[in-house]
Amino acid sequence: MSALIELSNVTKTFGHGQASFQALRGVDLQVEEGDFIAIMGPSGSGKSTAMNIIGCLDVPTSGEYLFQGAHVELLDRNQRALLRRHYLGFVFQGFNLLARTSAKENIELPLLYRGESAAVRHKMSTAALEQVGLTGWGHHTSGELSGGQQQRVAIARAIVTNPTLLLADEPTGNLDTTRSHEIMQLLRSLNEDKGITVLMVTHEPDMAEYAKRSIEFVDGKVESDTKNPALDRTGITTKSKDDQIDQTGVIQGDFNAME
């Protein structure tokens, strides 16, 4: 069992009784170490909900979630916090930077909880700022940064610890095309050079093409799971719609065979 994470029949229901809403209706998903996955799907299909559960920010209503073979659903709050601290990096859909706090301090926050010294924190945060193209912006507070800059600070904060698994919920949602591609290049190099497993939600097919694998959510379920052609993903690949459908079929077939 070499899978980094493994979800089986994970459901998530919000609310109780009449007002309850099932956001995830039985998600099965395996992510191998070193994979780079793009999650797509219509708004409200449960992408963020699934990311939050994988990121240990929320707990599933039912189902199993294994992280490196360990049952996450059985862990207590503190164990989940330590899992987040040591293995995960999370880029939120809404940035979630600390208000009135400098970019540098925001980025150093996870290092602080890891107990890194001030010198190490400084070195790593400077490197992370450079990676997201914000060298020299460290002392600006969140309020002084544009939406795109804030997003890049959020990315820097998620990658500064070199996490095992990087979860990014629409990391390019607020960026222009050029910047978006830069961020994708960054994610890819983190994936390829540092072996960080990346799970990314995106609405843009262009961005999804950087990933090795695309997953589509519909109505709280994994609708399709496609291996992207192993092209030289240096730029924008051209790929016909038919190919995709074809591959979807193959993967779906695999899933069916497994059941």
């Binding site: 920010l57 503190n78 916090a81 330590l82 987040r84 999370f90 926050l109 996870p110 909880y113 890891r114």
Partner: peptide
């Protein structure tokens, strides 16, 4: 509200409840 969100951020980043 603001403090609750801040606490959410800290927890999400890996802070323990007791910290």
């Amino acid at each position: 509200t603001e403090r609750t969100r801040e606490i959410g951020i800290r927890l999400a980043i890996g802070a323990l409840e007791k910290e």
